[in-house]
């Protein structure tokens, strides 16, 4: 039976991990390769690297990071942040990334999803959506595609939840899949960082309306939250950062807990 995936997410700035792992004795907790090795040994099913580098001059650094990590860590690697063109995506995939996640660039130009999917296959195109509850929808002036106008309580945001768009998060997810996305990474800007649980309603709304796997993100504070995201939120995978980085739980503990509650996971490595 297909296992639910547990995916640690690392933020990377100019080739260095920020908000790095703080609880184990790593030689260099800012080194993406060292952290990737650590999480691989801990039994992570996949890794997400989010490039938060502000300057585009430093993009080459990310390509080097991806090449180094994929040379020694043999689990799937998704890379997101600042990818704007088919050529940007090609460089990451050639460097050894298995998937890329697109967010703002896909909002600005949805055709990018179609182009990238046609070129590399849907399986390596992840549509990342930052969503936030915003009611009532009639307060916001609509000037985009009326078919994607807000109807559900969740609006797509850009720039880390600061800028609202016209897009309805559920419709945007469905549209992204039609355009060729092979996976949806959905982050609730309301629950992100609150450690109070994922937005289960949002997860379920998205997951039940698309035919591709959904990764839940934003709000994991304990293992119950992960269970709820998978079971009640109907997600296929859970992404988490601080809960792992600060040593509150290990990936193995998370897997044992989920398995104990009857969810299929790849057995922990220790």
């Amino acid at each position: 039976m297909l296992a639910h995936r547990i995916i640690p997410c690392l933020d990377i700035d100019s080739g260095r991990v920020v908000k790095g792992v703080s609880f184990v004795d790593l030689r260099d907790a800012g080194d993406p390769a060292e952290l990737a090795r650590f999480y691989n040994e801990a039994g992570a099913d996949e890794l997400v690297f989010l490039d938060i580098t502000a300057s585009s001059d430093d993009r080459d650094t990310m390509v080097d990071v991806v090449r180094r990590v994929s040379s020694e860590v043999f689990i799937p690697l998704t890379v997101g942040g600042g990818l704007r063109s088919v050529e940007d995506i090609r460089r990451m995939l050639e460097a050894g990334a298995d998937k890329v996640s697109l967010n703002t660039a896909a909002i600005n130009r949805p055709e990018l999803i179609r182009e990238a999917s046609a070129e590399f296959g849907a399986q390596c195109i992840v549509l990342a959506i930052d969503a936030k509850r915003l009611a009532p929808p009639e307060d916001v002036e609509l000037d985009g595609d009326p078919d994607l106008a807000a109807e559900s309580p969740w609006r797509v945001f850009t720039h880390g939840g600061r800028n609202p768009t016209d897009l309805d998060a559920v419709k945007w997810a469905r549209y992204g899949v039609e355009m060729g996305a092979g996976e949806i990474l959905i982050t609730s800007m309301d629950t992100d960082g609150q450690k109070d649980g994922y937005d289960l309603e949002l997860l379920r709304a998205i997951s039940d309306s698309v035919s591709v796997p959904v990764i839940a993100s934003g709000g994991a504070g304990n293992l119950d939250h992960m269970y709820d995201a998978l079971h009640e939120g109907h997600s296929d995978a859970v992404l988490a950062a601080s809960i792992f980085h600060f040593g509150e739980y290990t990936v193995s503990e998370a897997k044992r807990y989920l398995a104990g509650r009857g969810l299929p996971v790849r057995p922990p490595t220790d």
């Binding site: 849907a122 399986q123 035919s211 296929d236």
Partner: peptide
Amino acid sequence: KVPHMGWNA
């Protein structure tokens, strides 16, 4: 869900 994506036994 398709693709069949993830770890399976």
